[in-house]
Amino acid sequence: MNHQSIDTTTATKFLPMVSVVVPIYNAEADLSALIACLSAQTYPKDRVEYLLVDNNSSDRTLTLLQEAAASSVIKISALSENQIQSSYAARNTGIRAATGEIIAFTDADCHPQPQWLESLIQPFVNSEVVIVAGEITALPGNTLLEEYAELQDILSQKHTLAHPFCAYGQTANLAIRRTALEKVGLFRPYLTTGGDADICWRILQQNLGRLEFAPQATVQHRHRTTLKELASQWRRYGRSNRYLHELHGIELMPELNLAEYGHRLGRWMFKELPKNTVKAIAGKASLVDLLNTPLTVFVIQARISGQKNAKLPENAKIIAWL
């Protein structure tokens, strides 16, 4: 009995200093929810600092951050990155001000659950672990596109952890040991997408340690609600493909030709749609089941166009250092 209690205390004694870095751009609508989520963390308040970095917002974001820093029950620092318009440059500003041995990342439009930080930090008890990725789930949504994204599990880290080139975690829910950043450098400040994969791969390729997945460390994220936002999200994924192809040599996504589009949509119209319509009448399928294929073709097309039209800027190759 006594032996067991010793084990649990040793397990819970692992409480390194943690710095949570959040880049913020024009997010006055999201700030109060974000700060409420950070304030509700179960990780001991005296072992964590929150570095919220305004990236040249044109709304009241910076003022609200400064007010929160002055009045919050948790330790908030309101910082700004006005030189470079990029979430990675803003993250670097946060990292440079950080005092923790573990740097954790999330985004302004995310809702970290109360156990998030505690679960995200636990795997670092093993000194071989240098990166931990937590899970990203959807905030409850009821529009067709939110339901589609939910069905596809678009945001889940399982996609990035299974990347054919090398596993990585998205910065919406990621933690990195500070010593790894000292060795490989920070984010590429002029990169506008793909920086999470890039930094994880640089760390893993130098064999500094391994990446661990912490499924209990959950962050909720809002899905896109309009076709315009959905297309823009997938074009960004396409640009990310192109940039990572240039930086790391990953394979590009193959383009679909007209015959393949025709085949997919034909199969949908004559096979899937009638079958799912019958199911829908019986109450066993929803609108999102009926429109799944055309939406998938739509996002594939957006991703391919993003990949095709992107060109990695020369300065995006620059790596910043601590």
Rank of each mutant, 00 (worst) to 15 (best):
Y88V: 00
P16F: 04
L145S: 09
L151R: 15
L186T: 02
A280G: 10
A320G: 09
R235Q: 13
I74Y: 04
L230M: 12
K75H: 11
H111I: 13
F105N: 02
P189F: 00
C110A: 12
N142I: 10
I304P: 02
E314Q: 13
L191H: 00
V48A: 10
E146W: 10
R235C: 10
T106V: 05
S71Q: 13
F187K: 00
P123Y: 01
E246Q: 08
A175M: 04
A259F: 13
R96F: 07
P112K: 02
P164R: 06
L295V: 11
K275P: 04
A138N: 15
C166E: 11
V20I: 15
Q170V: 14
Q41D: 02
T61F: 09
P294S: 07
Q206T: 05
G195V: 00
K317Q: 15
T106H: 07
H248F: 15
I121P: 01
P44C: 07
E28S: 08
A217F: 02
I250R: 03
L208I: 09
G134A: 05
D30I: 05
A180S: 15
G209D: 11
Q83P: 06
A231D: 13
K13I: 08
D30W: 12
V53L: 04
N309A: 12
P274K: 02
A180N: 03
V129S: 06
C110H: 04
D54W: 03
A214N: 03
R202T: 08
V130Q: 03
R177K: 12
Y25D: 02
T12C: 15
F14N: 11
G169Q: 05
F124A: 01
P313Y: 08
V278D: 07
R60K: 14
E101N: 09
K284Q: 15
S87L: 08
D54N: 13
N173I: 08
Y190R: 01
H223A: 09
I318F: 14
A172N: 13
L244I: 02
L252Q: 09
E135I: 06
A231L: 04
E128T: 13
E212F: 06
R91H: 13
T99G: 15
S119C: 13
T192F: 01
S305V: 14
A133S: 15
I199P: 01
R177D: 03
E246L: 09
R303P: 07
D198V: 02
L65N: 06
C166I: 07
L256W: 15
L145V: 12
A69V: 06
S57A: 11
P123I: 01
I318A: 14
T193K: 01
S57K: 08
R264Q: 14
E255G: 11
E150W: 10
L79Y: 03
S240T: 03
E101Q: 11
P274D: 04
G169E: 07
G100P: 02
P140D: 09
I103D: 00
G209I: 10
L247S: 07
F213H: 14
H248T: 08
E118S: 14
N82D: 12
A316L: 07
V299N: 02
A167E: 11
F298C: 10
S86W: 00
W268P: 07
T10W: 15
S286P: 07
Q113C: 11
R188A: 12
I154E: 02
I304Y: 04
T225L: 07
E260T: 08
E28P: 02
Q301N: 13
V130G: 01
A259K: 09
A316N: 06
E67A: 15
H3F: 15
L34I: 09
W268Y: 12
D153H: 12
S80E: 14
A70F: 08
